[in-house]
Amino acid sequence: MSKENKTPPSSILENKGILAGISFIAGILLLVGILYATGILGGSAAVPPEECGRTVISYVNANLVGNSTATLVSVTEKDGVYHVAARYEGKDLVFFSTKDCTYLFSTARNMKTTPTPTPVPATTVPPVKSARPSVELFAMAFCPYGVQAENAMKPVAELLGTKADIKVRYIVSINGDSVDAVKSLHGISEAKEDLRQICVAKNYPQKYWSYITELNAQCYPIYKNATQLESCQKNITESLGIDNRQIETCALGSEGLALLRADEAITKTLRVTGSPTLILNGQIYSGQRTPEAYKQAICNHFETPPAECSVNLSAQAVAASSGSC
Results as ranks from 00 to 15, higher is better:
Ser2Pro: 06
Ser2Gln: 09
Asn15Gly: 06
Leu19Thr: 15
Gly27Cys: 11
Gly39Ala: 11
Gly39Met: 10
Gly42Cys: 08
Ala45Lys: 11
Val47Lys: 15
Pro49Ala: 09
Thr55His: 09
Val60Tyr: 01
Val75Tyr: 01
Thr76Asn: 11
Thr76Met: 09
Tyr82Ile: 12
Ala86Ile: 03
Tyr88Leu: 14
Val94Leu: 15
Leu104Lys: 05
Ser106Gly: 13
Asn110Ala: 00
Asn110Pro: 06
Pro117Phe: 13
Pro119Lys: 03
Val120Met: 12
Pro127Val: 13
Lys129Pro: 11
Ala139Ile: 15
Tyr145Thr: 00
Asn151Glu: 08
Met153Phe: 13
Leu160Ile: 04
Ser173Asn: 10
Ser178Ala: 06
Val182Thr: 11
Lys183Asn: 02
Leu195Thr: 15
Pro205Glu: 04
Gln206Pro: 05
Trp209Met: 14
Pro221Cys: 01
Ile222Leu: 09
Tyr223Ile: 00
Lys224Arg: 15
Leu229His: 11
Ile236Thr: 09
Asn244Ser: 03
Ile247Trp: 11
Thr249Met: 11
Gly253Ser: 04
Gly256His: 09
Leu260Asp: 14
Asp263Arg: 10
Thr267Cys: 02
Arg271Met: 10
Leu278Lys: 10
Gln283Trp: 05
Ile284Asp: 14
Tyr285Gly: 07
Pro291Val: 15
Ile298Trp: 09
His301Phe: 08
Phe302Ala: 14
Glu303Leu: 10
Thr304Tyr: 00
Val311Gly: 01
